[in-house]
Design a protein around this nucleic acid. Sequence first.
DNA 1: CCAATAGTTCGACGCCCATCTAATTAGACG
DNA 2: CGTCTAATTAGATGGGCGTCGAACTATTGG
Lengths: 198, 198
Amino acid sequence: MSDADLATLLAFFKAMSNESRLRMVGLMAERERSVQELAELLDLKEPTVSHHLASLKALGLVSARAEGVTRWHALRLEALTTLNRSMLDQKGVEKLTREVSATSWEDKVLEGFVDAGGRLTTMPASRRKRWIVLKWLTENFEEGRRYREHEVNEIIQRRHPDCATLRRELIGYGMMARDAGVYWRCPEDQWRTTPERA
Amino acid sequence: MSDADLATLLAFFKAMSNESRLRMVGLMAERERSVQELAELLDLKEPTVSHHLASLKALGLVSARAEGVTRWHALRLEALTTLNRSMLDQKGVEKLTREVSATSWEDKVLEGFVDAGGRLTTMPASRRKRWIVLKWLTENFEEGRRYREHEVNEIIQRRHPDCATLRRELIGYGMMARDAGVYWRCPEDQWRTTPERA
DNA sequence: CCAATAGTTCGACGCCCATCTAATTAGACG
DNA sequence: CGTCTAATTAGATGGGCGTCGAACTATTGG
């Protein structure tokens, strides 16, 4: 019903984001108007008004009635309120989100640094993004199991050749721990949280 | 209270009329976001996001919270709904009108053809506009009083030299009538209505 | 005090769109 | 059918703004 998708809502806002069109809407809300009349009141030429009316009509915001050679244009108030209502409540605004963040922030970051074969191409310079990549790397280790160094290297190398650096980073972020040459995956609540995300 | 004037409303619509900004609003409605995060999710560079956030903040639609070197931006839902509500009801839309049509259509037309001294400069080509001008001319005659032709000419000439043509038009539109060289002003309900305005 | 990271500011570039003029279509009317 | 008026279409132009890279600022941590 009142589910305006992003594209529709965007089109609506674009329509109302022009002073001439917004004023036209105001004038047509009062009563129906001819092109001449609108042009005069807005200090525009007829073609310009005609142009704007066309776009408003395309959105169903305006209806026209012909009378002789004149056309009377009126605002379709229902359309206006319907469209507008979708922004009003929390749910309406959040609906925009769903379309946008179907892929989450973390997935999006991974897309950027992991190729189709599941191999790490480059390491992010950003701390937060590095944290996300390392978290993804950690999924290759089982919690509770102990690994010898060459096992760790092997697993990491399936993702990226420079296992030494990555191993060090994993430890640094508290995702893995080491004692006497033996490594294990730490429970998530012991990881260093990403810098400024409590 | 919720009286958004045209300028405010226009600024709001301009803000929401850009896809990037609209999506940002959606994302920030869900939870607070960092610039990095928004840039990644929207496939934009940080400067661009920063730029958009600045304009949204200028409208009071977004609030920011600093945490270390990061800034978390959140949507101010109240501001959004307040602004948006003003379009919802009939009255809100019509309020736009008042600012726009302080001078009515007819006054506006007259402005265009009558100079400061109250003299008619040119005659409108448009039929509807000519009707308006003639209506204005008719105000110089009292209803119920009878005029001889030279009186009519005199009165008209105070407005425009070509009294013959104008006299003829006044008759044509039914605003004045004549019988045996005597003229009088007709009551308004006998005027020919403007062509396509029932 | 230096390095590293997050964000902002600045200047430039390119595209979209609001507007105009000129030309065209479409009713109305004699 | 030809004229007149209202409106639309087409084509051209100019300005605004969304975007980016580069340089700068600010905060944190060794």
